[in-house]
Amino acid sequence: MKDRIKIGISACLIGQKVRYDGQHAKAPHLTGVLADHLEFHPVCPEVACGMGVPREAVRLVGTKDNSRLVGRSTGTDWTDAMREWASSFLPELEEQRLCGFIFKAKSPSSGMGHVKIFPENGGQPVSYAGTGLFAAMVMERFPLLPVEDDGRLHDVGLRANFIERIFVEHRWNRLLDQGRTMKGLINFHTRHKLLIRSHDVVGYRELGKLVGAGGQADTDELFENYHQRLAKTLSLKPTVKKNVDVLMHILGYFKKVLTRDEKQECLDLLENYRNELVPLIVPVTLLNHYVRKYGEDYLRDQYYLNPHPLELKLRNHA
């Protein structure tokens, strides 16, 4: 794949031996077939801010709203060093125009949530609601960036949603490269309509209104507002119910051409999918067949029917 999607990732997850004990935490579910479509930009904030390998393990100390990064044994405070390095590194990260970031779960520097926070005087954790210092700064600097951690990405639904979002973000960046024009935005929105609808009907309608009134708005402001609402909408996971709604909508395009038996076959497959007897790929494959057979150009261009490469098998389990 020549046009790879740029992704930030904790370096240990792709096999780099940068953990405190000199080992890695390679994640096969992220470095297998998926890696063929991604351009990884690895970073280990603990090494980058000067801790070295191997090193003393660190942890978060304090409270959720005011936590510090300190050594487990010596109590050495790395908070300022981490923040100073991250502040200088984030502008470089912005230049990469990443389409997403995969963090190391539960890491005191890179965990995006559920990180242990310990009391000042030692003892057991007082909270499991912490966020790694570096991860927090990345998410604050890039609030629209799709982010996940390696632990959550074991969940098939979360993985499918994250990968779908980074593919959309990639296409959004390509749109920006072509220039901010109403024609480009209309084409982008048109091709993503059904995919957006599968995430949230309210967001689908609001994005449609933004595009519909776009000719009366400042172009830069319109693109920013659209991107913000798009990111919020896609952060909501599709459900079986939402997908059935979209699939029924697609089926409506063929009501005048399908035979009675063909219609019934589609309805039976949708019912089987609704009852979780078959995965999403089954009704989608049949509808794609009818799109090709009857030359439905509008549906052929819909990313919902082909949101990402088939070899990722993300709809084989949904």
Rank of each mutant, 00 (worst) to 15 (best):
K2P: 09
K6T: 11
I7R: 05
G8F: 01
S10N: 08
S10W: 12
S10C: 08
A11T: 03
R19C: 03
R19T: 02
G22P: 02
H24W: 11
K26P: 05
P28M: 06
P28L: 02
H29R: 01
L30G: 00
V33L: 13
H37N: 02
H37C: 01
E39S: 12
E39C: 06
E39A: 10
V43H: 06
V43R: 11
A48P: 07
M51A: 01
M51I: 10
G52F: 07
R55G: 08
E56Y: 09
E56K: 09
A57W: 06
A57M: 13
V61H: 09
W78E: 07
T79Y: 09
T79S: 15
A81I: 03
A81R: 13
M82L: 12
S88D: 09
S88T: 09
F89H: 12
F89W: 15
L90S: 02
P91L: 00
E94T: 08
E95G: 15
R97W: 00
C99K: 10
F101I: 03
F101H: 07
I102V: 13
F103V: 05
A105Q: 11
K106Y: 10
K106I: 01
S109C: 07
S109R: 04
G111T: 04
G113K: 14
K116T: 04
K116P: 00
I117Y: 00
F134T: 03
F134L: 09
A136T: 05
A136R: 15
A136F: 00
M139G: 01
R141S: 01
P143S: 03
L144E: 13
V147Q: 04
L158S: 14
R159H: 09
I163K: 03
R165G: 05
E169M: 15
R171A: 07
Q178W: 05
R180A: 11
M182T: 02
K183D: 15
K183F: 13
H192G: 09
L194F: 11
I196A: 06
H199T: 05
D200S: 11
V202R: 06
E206S: 06
V211K: 00
G215I: 07
G215V: 02
T219I: 12
F223V: 00
Y226R: 10
Y226S: 02
Q228F: 15
K232N: 15
S235I: 10
L236N: 15
K237Y: 15
P238A: 10
T239R: 04
K241H: 13
K242I: 11
N243C: 06
D245R: 14
V246N: 05
V246G: 00
L247K: 04
H249Y: 14
I250E: 11
G252T: 03
Y253I: 08
K255G: 12
L258H: 14
R260A: 14
E262I: 10
E262D: 11
E265A: 10
E265N: 12
C266E: 05
C266S: 11
L267V: 15
E271R: 13
Y273T: 02
E276C: 04
P279F: 02
V282L: 08
P283Q: 01
T285G: 04
L287H: 05
L287C: 03
H289G: 14
Y290D: 09
R292F: 00
K293Y: 11
Y294V: 01
G295S: 03
G295H: 07
P307S: 06
H308N: 12
H308Q: 10
P309K: 03
L310I: 15
K313Q: 11
L314W: 07
L314I: 11
H317P: 02
